[in-house]
Write a protein that binds this DNA or RNA. Structure first.
Lengths: 335, 335
DNA sequence: CTGAAAGCGCTTACAG
DNA sequence: CTGAAAGCGCTTACAG
């Protein structure tokens, strides 16, 4: 009933088993090096006393945390949580702990999270927020992998989708369906994904020689932006027959607002999104979109990071996870 | 350019500043106890050398990790990520690190995560998964708070919604809108929230003396279950005029499937959900539901845990976060 | 196969 | 206000 039953230490086990601390440690870390008999005695002592190694002591001694830092911009966003699941999946296989931090796109917060790389709490980092505040050369030699959003000036490994290519494919799909007057609703100006997707859109419409009929509307990935874009389109751009939204939230916001105003999708306007977040398929009409395999993205990035942590010689690589156009109910063939 | 520029230690700082390790430590942890002049010298030495304290050494010495373990059943579920945001919010204020683990409802995995409580990596835990494998008395004295889902047999603090009351209110709302033949689509059988929400439904329909006209359909919180319930209702229960779904995903699955079959909501059937996840308001028709303030839930639970960790005397409490019925577009008044 | 001993990098009574 | 010294709980060459 005492508040502090004083955790057992390795010495307690050693005493009980009649061996040295070293032997207990060996049984726990490297059992094959100890005789079967001793192993048995020690194992029983460990069990009977309920001993667990003190992680802090191990970290200090080994100079290794067996922990990976994950920084993301928004924990409450499903887009990231599926990447996290992939990361978690590999981490639990490799017996690694993950330390998750929410940067909220605040660089001071991000910096304070990155401290874990210097104070020894984490052996490496996975960056989902597209930013590495501070001089990049400070991170040289630190195991770091960026996911989804590339980081300008950062030379380490990256795992993500080829956004430009995927955006081209999305746009081309609209063109293949007969559309010639297409609008793009972009993501936030300062986001690298926005730029890449917009570039893909631009290339596709230029290639088809319809750029002059197409327009771009500034968005910010929020569904409310899709809604205001709907208003804008209805008022000022009645000629547009299809819209490529830089993400699914905006696509849904757009479709909902159009429906509110009696404009049916895809009958009167076709819409394609990007990401294939969970609700894209539940929403009605279900959203035609580009599927990013986020679980696999997380898995791959974590594997890469682990190999960087354990094997010093890893050279930076860029990995593109295959994407897929999901044909659903928001795009219609015309003329 | 060397791979291992050997992290500076407190002794390096001490040497450079011409003081003892103890003084450096004091400047960092307890500056007001050191003379202004010494403080300045040391601070400068710290900066010039780029020193950061080794967390493992601090943890070992202080016997405190300044870290909180958070266990949740599903990282890829928005329901939990908003609670996480609330937890993160308090953690960053209190300068605490959070260690997030995904149990996947697997009790072995959960147990291995809880190890962090015994190996010193975490000072306390926040449990969102409704389970505490292993003898509960083993956790006695450990700072633990359960969130959203209560844990049977666990006597610690809990933060959540009064699910039974909220479910009664949801059902009563349908009754107030004139409905007398109501169906309930429940959550998974073994989930405590399912039981509480079903109990609320039962009480409300009993109180209104309409229990004989009402039915319950087994669900599991997945939107696909809502869809199959729709089929079931159309085939076997044409008399039903309103449905209380135990969560929003099922409500959306139900509405989508009905729409697919030409049955309009709320014109031909009224539907109310539970949770108010993000998409409940974006979905069309927007879902009438019970809003749980998950951000606040996370904040409150974390605050409670912190006070338990620092102040030994905290007695367990049960905190209900206020909920709110969000009237939107899926419930219609009849007759 | 096993043990004695050093040492990882801090913090904190204790003494002055 | 500051320093010398002990010690937190491990792991790992080194020796035998």
């Amino acid at each position: 009933m005492s508040k502090n039953p004083k955790r057992p230490t390795i010495s307690d086990v050693a005493k009980l088993a009649g061996v040295s601390n070293a032997t207990v440690s060996r049984v726990l870390q490297n059992p094959e090096v100890v005789s079967a008999a001793t192993r048995k005695t020690v194992t029983e002592a460990v069990k009977s006393i309920g001993y667990r190694a003190n992680t802090a002591a191990q970290m200090l001694r080994r100079n290794r945390a067996n922990t990976v830092l994950v920084i993301l911009p928004d924990l409450a966003n499903t887009f990231f949580s599926e990447i996290l699941s992939g990361i978690e999946n590999v981490a639990s296989e490799a017996n690694l702990t993950i330390l998750i931090g929410n940067s909220n796109n605040d660089s001071a917060r991000c910096l304070s999270l990155l401290e874990n790389l210097w104070n020894g709490r984490a052996d490496g980092a996975l960056l989902l927020n597209g930013a590495l505040p501070d001089a990049e050369d400070r991170y040289e030699g630190k195991p770091i992998v960026s996911i989804s959003e590339t980081i300008s000036g950062f030379l380490g490994s990256h795992v993500g989708t080829n956004n430009e290519l995927a955006a081209m494919d999305a746009t081309q799909f609209l063109i293949d369906m007969g559309h010639r007057k297409i609008a793009h609703i972009s993501g936030p100006k300062d986001n690298i994904l926005s730029a890449q997707r917009m570039a893909g859109f631009d290339k596709a419409v230029s290639r088809a020689d319809i750029a002059a009929n197409c327009i771009s509307i500034d968005g910010d990935f929020a569904s409310s932006t899709g809604a205001s874009a709907a208003t804008n389109l209805m008022k000022n751009h009645a000629e547009i027959t299809a819209v490529f939204c830089a993400n699914d939230e905006m696509a849904m916001g757009l479709v909902s607002e159009l429906a509110e105003n009696g404009i049916g999708v895809p009958d009167q306007l076709s819409v394609i999104g990007f990401d294939d977040i969970n609700f894209a398929s539940i929403y009605r009409p279900s959203i035609t979109t580009i599927r990013q395999d986020r679980f696999e993205m997380g898995r791959k990035a974590m594997s890469l990071l682990v190999s960087q942590i354990t094997n010093e010689a890893a050279t930076p690589v860029e990995v593109y996870i295959p994407y897929k156009l999901m044909e659903r109910d928001t795009v219609k063939r015309i003329t």
